[in-house]
C-alpha cells in the first residue's frame, strides 16, 4: 500500500516537472501557429500530448491547428476533447460549433429521453472535477454533522433537519457526478476523421450501405466486432463503421 502511494506521489511529481518542460514546446507551437505554419504547430502540440499530458488549452490549440490545416475530422475531435476538460470555455464551445458546421453530413438529433436531455444540459457546462468537489463538500458536511451528533454527542436545534437536507444534497451531487462521469468517460463517443467513411448495416463492407459519413460527424460507440464498431448516430440510427475511420474522443 505504502509502495502504491509512493508511486502515485512520484508520478505526480514527474508530471509537475514535465509540465514545466512542456510549456516551452507549447510556446513554440503557438509561435508556429502565429506564423501560419500549422503543420509544425500540430507537430509541437502533439508532442506534448504524446508525453502523456493533457489540458483544455492544448486540445483547443490542436483543434485550431487541425482546422487551419484543413483536417476537419481531427479539429472536431480535439475540440470535443478540449470541451471535456473545459466545458465552460466559450472559445472551445464557439470553435466546436463553428467547425462542426463544415461537416458534410449533419444529423438532426432525435431526443428520446427528456430526463437525460435535462441532465445533460445541467451538467454540460461543468467539469467533472467541479461536480466531484461539490459532492465532497456536501458529503463531508454531512459527515461532520453525523460526527457532531453521533460521535461527539453535540446537538443543536434542528440538527436532524440539517442532516437530512445535507444527505439529499449529497445524493443529488453524487447523481450529477456519476452522470457526468458516464457521459464523459463511460459513454464512448468518436469522431469520423477519414475523408470517406461508409456506414454499413453490418460489420462488413459486403452489407448494405446505410450512410456515407463525413469528417467531423460524431458517433456513439456501442460495441465492437472485428475491425468494425457498431455506432449510434445522432438521429438514433445504428450502423457499422471501420475502426480506423474514427477516433475516440
Amino acid at each position: 500500500m505504502t509502495d502504491k502511494i509512493l508511486a502515485i506521489l512520484l508520478m505526480t511529481l514527474i508530471c509537475a516537472s514535465a509540465a514545466d518542460g512542456q510549456e516551452d514546446i507549447f510556446r513554440t507551437g503557438v509561435k508556429y501557429y502565429q506564423e501560419s505554419n500549422y503543420d509544425d504547430a500540430v507537430r509541437m502540440f502533439s508532442k506534448i500530448e504524446k508525453s502523456g499530458i493533457e489540458s483544455a488549452a492544448l486540445y483547443y490549440n490542436l483543434g485550431n491547428a487541425y482546422f487551419k490545416s484543413g483536417d476537419l475530422g481531427r479539429a472536431v475531435l480535439y475540440y470535443h476533447r478540449a470541451k471535456r476538460l473545459g466545458p465552460g470555455d466559450a472559445d472551445i464551445i464557439n470553435n466546436l460549433k463553428f467547425a462542426s458546421q463544415f461537416s458534410k453530413v449533419q444529423m438532426v438529433g432525435v431526443q428520446l429521453n427528456p430526463v437525460e436531455a435535462f441532465l445533460k444540459d445541467t451538467v454540460g457546462s461543468y467539469k467533472l472535477s467541479a461536480l466531484g468537489w461539490l459532492f465532497s463538500l456536501f458529503f463531508i458536511s454531512f459527515l461532520i454533522l453525523l460526527i457532531m451528533k453521533y460521535g461527539l454527542q453535540y446537538f443543536f436545534t434542528g440538527i436532524d433537519a440539517v442532516i437530512i437536507s445535507m444527505l439529499c444534497l449529497t445524493i443529488f451531487a453524487a447523481g450529477l457526478t456519476s452522470f457526468k462521469y458516464r457521459v464523459d468517460y463511460l459513454d464512448r463517443r468518436a469522431v469520423i476523421i477519414a475523408p470517406e467513411a461508409p456506414v454499413y448495416s453490418g460489420p462488413s463492407s459486403n452489407t448494405e450501405l446505410e450512410l456515407r459519413g463525413a469528417p467531423g460527424l460524431v458517433v456513439e460507440l456501442l460495441q465492437e466486432s472485428g475491425d468494425y464498431y457498431n455506432v449510434l448516430l445522432e438521429n438514433k440510427r445504428r450502423g457499422w463503421i471501420k475502426k480506423d475511420l474514427v477516433a475516440e474522443i
Binding site: M11, C15, A19, Q22, E23, F26, R27, V30, Y33, I48, E49, G52, I53, E54, S55, A56, A57, L58, Y60, N61, N64, A65, F67, K68, G86, D91, N94, N95, F98, A99, F102
Partner: peptide, 17 residues
Amino acid sequence: ARDIRYIKTDLGDTQPI
C-alpha cells in the same frame, strides 16, 4: 476560414491523460 477564435497562449492546468 477566419471565424474560429484564436489559440490560447497558456498551457493552463495540466494533468496526466
